[in-house]
Structure formats: structure tokens, C-alpha cells
Design a protein around this nucleic acid. Structure first.
Lengths: 252, 252
DNA sequence: GTCCGGTCTGACGTTACGTCAGGGTCAAGC
DNA sequence: GCTTGACCCTGACGTAACGTCAGACCGGAC
């Protein structure tokens, strides 16, 4: 008899030890990611402590959000873990940026009003479009130097609760101010000042200076195209966004 | 003739207008999420401006990370948008917390050494396990008051580049210090001080005070169970973690 | 012998489409 | 009238990481 390892575990026990499910073990087995050391005569999976070490690695890498395919490659003897971790981190950071944008959009729409009543569909749509544009305008990142990139990364403020409340209040007052200035000339200094405040505030949660999409005001102005659910959730008048858009265009 | 809307769009044009793919339109159609106003005799989908409004909503809600099923419910006339947004935000924030933990784990393992050489598997595993435990120990959140929760939320520091560098340096010196103290009694004041530093540093990126898992040192100590890939990526000696674990246990 | 808990192997369900495959449609040019 | 190229249609399979049955076998206890 060759010297057998001290212990072998059946599926359930083994799974509990590592904090995964039996089904996951089946899955990893089928993928060739983790095959049990042996099978019993009746076909039961029997895992060794060495298998446990491998499973632990899988669990850790999975925690870092890596896909199983990549994990399999990383568990090969000649894999470059350091590089993989670095890349994975970049992936995670990008995902987080996207999450931040979504969170900020909701924040903006939800708490922009002092009353904290209904979120505003128009504003939500507007913010999301701004962010998508900013996203697409990220050729800056691709074409500018690494240093510029680093600066961009650093500048990101990441909504603190304090910032959030402050911005929330500022939105509320800004809306009120714009509403009372609706009759003004969009090119007037007063309108320009409002537009500047708007732009600045938008920058607070888009994380960069926003580019204003030109053709949207028509969409916002014509409510007839809105499906019913949208029409209910309206606290901000389209005129407000319309006015601001015009004012910004006037500033060229 | 009844008054027809001014325009009808075929799939591609319509898709381009809204920034989605034709295939997505097919998908939404099949799901009943967005059915074109009409079909041509030959079966072509013909979308109206009103459909465009609906599609815009879909795109916005999708940007916020909502699943299509929920979006469909939200587009019904009696939906509660505000509530849905609030819930969605909670979902996003939770996801972001998870991302943060993963990022921090990589940071910790990757940059813990001054040399920035290889990441350390042991430390990585350790950190991840800490975080999982902290995750499971989140009954605090469930059972404590909302105010306590808010404080927890607020406290989160969110790795700034500066913090990251500082922590990175502190890890490096801490490892060196522990290594030179390996012969000491884990209960000695010196060891205790090291353990305290360790605990504090761990807290920096786990975002809370860590709970030390008792049964791990055996695992860390016995390298024979580690699969080959792991053994390469080792800069930190298991003795270091072993020592710290003992010191912390000695502190009871 | 039987019962209960554990294990096995398929196989379908999930999410939001991407990607063919096979086959009509439409307007333009010859 | 015919071809051509751009577009449209409807399946149907693939993706990631398992969850969730379903049907059948195994192993120890009573």
C-alpha cells in the first residue's frame, strides 16, 4: 500500500469546510477546475486536503470577481498572479465607477428636491444621458498621457453623505431660482449665472465638466410622447430644463 | 383616415436613435417590454415617437442597473418609481461595498510589500477570509439601530491613493518588524504592540475592526497542502501570520 | 427489509442579449 | 424584369455560475 493521505472528505463535508455548495463542487468538477482526488467504488467524490488548498484558492479568486475560466488558468503552475491581480483590479475599479455613476444619478433625481417627494423623470433622463456622453467622451483617457489619467482618477470625489446633502440643497434652490427666472432672456447675465450654477452642480456628480446635449430640449418639451408612468413622476417642469439648455447654448 | 403620427421608424434607425441594438429591440419585443406600434405588411417592426419615449425610459432604468422584469413592472401606470429607485440604490450600494472589499483585498496583497514584487497568497487569503467574516458578522447592521448603521456607512474611508500608499508602506515596515521579532513570546508587550498595529492596519482596508479567525494558522503553517501555483507567489513567511495570530489570541 | 440522509448524473432555468443561419423585402440600377 | 446590396424577419444556440428539480443509487441504522 502506498502512503495514503490522512483524510478524504465526501462532498457535503468538504463543501461545508470551504463554504461552498455541493453543487458548486459538481460544477468545478465538470469544468475541470477542481477534480476530487478519487472516486469511491460507487462513484462518490472523495476530496483530499490538497484539494482543499486548491478550492481555497478558487474561493479567494472568485471573491475578487474573477471568472472561473481565468481562475483555471491562474491555477496552472506557470501563471502570472501578480499581473492578473492588477488587471482584475482595473476591471473592478471600472465597474465601481459605473456603479458610482448610477448611484449618483439616482441621488440626483431622488434628492434634488427639497421636499424629497417624487423623483423627476426628466432630470433622471438628463443625468443619465450626460453620463453616457461623458462615458463616450472618455477617449480623453485613451489618448492622453498616463499622468493626465492619474489626475483624472484622483480628482473623483466619490459622494460623501455631506456632499450629497449639500448638493441636494443646492439643486433645490437652483430649481426654484430658475423657475422664477423663466421669463428672462436666456442670454441675460442672470440666466448665464444660473446656467453656470447648473453646470457646476452637474459636474459634482458626473465627476467632470458635462457636455450639454443639444437636441434634447425638443424631447423634453413635448410631453405627448411620454408613456403614462413617466407623466406621474413629474415635479420639475420641462421648461426649467428647456430654459437651462437654451441658456447654455446662448453661452456658446 | 385617423390622424397618424408623423413618423414611423424601422428597426435600425430607431435603434440608432436610442443608442441600442436592433437585437435588443427584438428582445424587448419578445419580452413584451416594448412592442412596436405597428408591423408593416411584410412583418417589419415600425416604431412611433411614443415608442421612443418608452424606450428611453427603458434605457435609463437599465443604466441604473435594473433587471428588465422590474423595468417592465415600473413602466406600468400604477408603479411606484420613487420606491423602486430607493431600493435600487440600496442594491447598488451593496454591490459597491462588495467591489470595494475586493479592490482593497487586492491592494493589500499587491502593495503590502515595499518592493511591489509578488503579491502574497497567504495574505490575500487571509484578507479575503477576514472580509468574508466581517460580511457574515454584519448582523450588526441588521440588529443595530438605523443611526448606528448610518455611522457605519459614513465611517467608510474608501481608499484614496494617499491612504493606499501610506498603508502600503506601513505594511512593509510592519512585516519587517514582525519578522525580526519572531523569536519573542507572543504575549510579550512587543508582540502585543505588533498585533495592535496589524489589527489597526487591517482595519484600514476592511473598514471595520477585524475578527481574527482562530483555526487558520494550521492551514497557513502547513505548506504541503498548497497547490504548486500558490507556492511560487510567496513573499511573506507563514511564520509571520502564525506569530500574529498567536499574539492576538494571547491578547484574548 | 426498510427508512433516511447523502450522492450521482442529466437537464432545464436564469440574464440580456450576441451571433449565426436560412430566408424574405425593398429600392435602385441595368 | 432581373440582379444586387442593404435591411428585415424568425428561430436557435451560446454565455456565467451555478440553483433547482427529477430519477435513481448507496450506506448505515433500526
Amino acid at each position: 500500500m502506498t502512503q495514503e493521505p490522512k483524510e478524504l472528505f465526501k462532498a457535503q463535508e468538504f463543501a461545508r469546510l470551504a463554504g461552498v455548495t455541493v453543487r458548486a463542487l459538481h460544477h468545478y468538477d465538470k469544468l475541470g477546475l477542481l477534480k476530487p482526488k478519487q472516486r469511491s467504488r460507487s462513484g462518490y467524490r472523495l476530496y483530499s486536503p490538497r484539494d482543499f488548498g486548491r478550492l481555497e484558492q478558487i474561493v479567494v479568486l472568485k471573491y475578487l470577481g474573477m471568472p472561473l475560466k481565468q481562475i483555471r488558468r491562474l491555477l496552472e503552475p506557470d501563471a502570472n498572479l501578480s499581473q492578473a491581480l492588477q488587471r482584475q483590479q482595473a476591471v473592478l475599479l471600472e465597474k465601481r465607477r459605473q456603479l458610482d455613476r448610477a448611484v449618483a444619478a439616482i441621488q440626483g433625481a431622488q434628492y434634488s428636491f427639497a421636499g424629497r417627494g417624487e423623483p423627476d423623470w426628466n432630470l433622471l433622463k438628463y443625468i443619465v444621458q450626460e453620463m453616457e456622453m461623458q462615458n463616450n467622451t472618455d477617449w480623453t483617457k485613451k489618448y492622453y498621457s498616463a499622468e493626465a489619467q492619474a489626475k483624472v482618477e484622483t480628482r473623483k470625489p466619490l459622494w460623501s453623505p455631506e456632499l450629497q446633502e449639500r448638493v441636494s440643497r443646492e439643486w433645490a434652490t437652483l430649481f426654484a431660482d430658475v423657475e422664477s427666472a423663466l421669463g428672462e432672456d436666456p442670454a441675460s447675465p442672470k440666466a448665464q449665472e444660473l446656467a453656470a450654477r447648473w453646470k457646476k452642480l452637474l459636474g459634482e456628480f458626473t465627476g467632470g465638466d458635462p457636455q450639454i446635449q443639444q437636441g434634447l430640449n425638443a424631447m423634453y418639451a413635448d410631453q405627448s410622447n411620454w408613456p403614462p408612468a413617466t407623466q406621474k413622476a413629474h415635479a420639475i417642469k420641462p421648461e426649467i430644463i428647456d430654459f437651462i439648455t437654451k441658456a447654455m447654448r446662448a453661452a456658446r
